[in-house]
């Protein structure tokens, strides 16, 4: 959040090569986390907290290294990534399909929208028991749950985005001899793109959340499996590693969506100007 706001507000500074002011701002951002780490480590070193319940940063780092060299970390990370990747993919494709269908046509709105609006009110995580009964305990229920969770933000935002495209622009475009398909492709869908990307960011967040829950309920691989196993053996350091991995994955994927946003919405005022090809306004 903060970085976007700062870079949007001060395009000049960003464009200028690394100056000391920008460096200090960057440095300040890390002050607090670093301080916390130091205090935490100190508390542990002086045995002021129970390291069985709250392992020190060094212990967590060691545990991370162990998991890495034994290959456990990467194997389970891969299992989790595949689940989220496939689930998110299915959710985005279906959400986009429904969103375009309902957004573009009255028929689509009548058939799809009311149904999805009803299903939406149900917390998708509540479906876990049902999905396990339906799909067993393999990959299918987890992927299905992630797909379901990711579908709604995409659908809702795309639908709203399509419906809120400026009528005046559509009208102007319709005087330019464009076909129906050309207007949708050149006007309606690009107009809905910003809102779609908002939906995508929510979907990515929900996909990770769903993964965490689904893997803790039942799994024999994945980061969640690693964490639940560690709980059984009271390995709090491994639990911490799992939490950090989750946080990093969330952060990285959110950044990825932001990069997509920045590229796809280069025309928007907040981004125009930070683009090097068009400096002066």
């Amino acid at each position: 959040m903060a970085s976007a706001a700062v870079s949007a507000a001060r395009p000049q500074q960003r464009a200028a090569s690394f100056n000391s002011g920008a460096f200090l701002t960057q440095a300040h951002r890390f002050t607090m986390p670093v301080l916390i780490l130091i205090v935490w480590q100190a508390l542990d070193s002086f045995h002021l907290i129970n390291s069985r319940l709250m392992p020190s940063p060094v212990m967590v780092a060691e545990s991370f290294w162990q998991l890495l060299v034994t290959g456990q970390l990467l194997g389970n990370l891969w299992a989790s990534l595949v689940r989220v990747g496939i689930g998110l993919g299915i959710g985005v494709v279906l959400g986009t399909g429904f969103g375009v269908f309902a957004g573009l046509s009255r028929l689509g709105e009548d058939t799809v929208d009311s149904t999805l609006q009803m299903v939406r009110t149900l917390p998708h995580l509540a479906l876990i028991p049902l999905f396990i009964l339906w799909f067993g305990i393999g990959e299918t229920p987890k992927i299905a749950l992630i797909a379901l969770g990711a579908l709604f933000p995409i659908y809702l935002n795309l639908f709203a985005g399509i419906r809120s495209v400026d009528r005046k622009i559509i009208e102007a475009a319709s005087t330019l001899n464009l076909t129906h398909a050309e207007i949708i492709w050149n006007v309606v869908l690009p107009g809905a793109l910003p809102q779609f990307l908002v939906g995508l960011r929510y979907s990515v967040g929900i996909a990770w959340l769903t993964l965490v829950v689904a893997e803790q309920v039942n799994a024999n691989s994945g980061i969640g499996y690693l964490v639940m196993n560690a709980r059984d053996f009271l390995e709090t350091d491994v639990i911490f590693v799992g939490l950090i991995i989750y946080a990093l994955l969330g952060l990285i994927t959110d950044q990825m969506v932001r990069i997509i946003e920045r590229r796809a919405l280069a025309w928007r005022p907040s981004f125009v100007g930070t683009q090097s090809n068009r400096g002066a306004l």
């Binding site: 622009i169 102007a172 475009a173 001899n177 690009p190």
Partner: peptide, 26 residues
Amino acid sequence: ERAVVFQEPRLLPWKRVWRNVALGLR
């Protein structure tokens, strides 16, 4: 062969200027 200009420019903000002008040229 007719063309309209409205009170607002009504350009497509996501297309560069020349693409706005060229839109629909066959």
